[in-house]
């Protein structure tokens, strides 16, 4: 049962990774007892399972994910929301209004208009139907203030860091509240624009250098240096 790539080595679609009694994990497929890569990424072995950590991918909805989306269309009884996935998501009016929806009286554009941002949770999705969103939980709903940025969805785990080490460090250092949409959209709300900018800068840096060593320490250092500069100016 040979493997042809070492752990963390880069593969391109079609590369033969392993042969024999292995299980095809993420971004791989099995044919004639051989495991091939289906995306460009880095190889990971997990016992008998072969995974490829994708370097480029798009967001695929999953039930339970918190996402940040943009309202693109107002329908008869709800909204269509762009969640930067292959499918547009549906947000029902009855879910947002938390009371029976009266089509004659309620004006949906008063509640959420086209272009508004919403934080929502995916409540149902399979490939035959578009994902459905819900805002019926604390912390979800329309975005009223803050900065929005987009990164590759595969890099969200890196922004979170091991056991949340990275994200809690950025929150602590910048004093910003950071909401990570699993679809790669991030909402940052801080006390001042400077704080928000600093947090955005840190996240950009993580995206660019996501696979390098000792990133958390370097990001901490960068934020402190930037803060020092700002302090000096004042």
């Amino acid at each position: 049962m040979p493997t042809y790539f070492e752990r963390r080595q880069i593969v391109t679609p079609g590369d033969l990774i392993a042969e024999g009694d292995y299980v095809a994990g993420e971004n791989t497929y099995k044919e004639n007892n051989k495991i091939y890569a289906s995306r460009i990424g880095l190889v990971e072995y997990e016992n008998k399972k072969v995974n490829v950590v994708a370097l480029r991918a798009f967001y695929i909805p999953r039930v339970g994910d918190t996402v940040i989306g943009t309202v693109v269309e107002i329908g008869f009884n709800g909204w269509m929301v762009d969640i930067s996935a292959p499918y547009q998501a549906i947000l029902r009016a009855s879910n947002v209004l938390s009371r029976p929806f009266r089509p004659q009286k309620d004006d949906l554009s008063q509640v959420l208009d086209v272009g508004d941002l919403v934080v929502a949770k995916i409540v149902s999705y399979d490939r035959t139907r578009n994902p459905q969103l819900s805002v019926g939980e604390p912390g979800l709903g329309k975005v009223t203030r803050g900065q929005i940025m987009k990164i590759t969805p595969t890099k969200i785990p890196r922004v979170i860091g091991r056991k949340g080490s990275m994200i809690s460090m950025i929150k602590q250092e910048t004093g910003c509240h950071i909401l990570l949409g699993l679809n790669g959209v991030i909402l940052i709300t801080g006390k001042s624009l400077e704080d928000e900018r600093l947090a955005m800068m840190a996240i950009r840096k993580i995206e660019e250098e996501s696979h390098t060593r000792g990133l958390t320490d370097r990001i901490t250092q960068m934020i402190r240096e930037e803060k020092g500069k700002k302090g000096g100016e004042k």
Binding site: P13, G14, Y36, I40, L55, R56, F58
Partner: peptide, 11 residues
């Protein structure tokens, strides 16, 4: 296609 992250059998 590979650059867009589309799952492919091969190049």
């Amino acid at each position: 296609l590979a650059d867009a992250g589309i799952p492919m059998k091969d190049l």
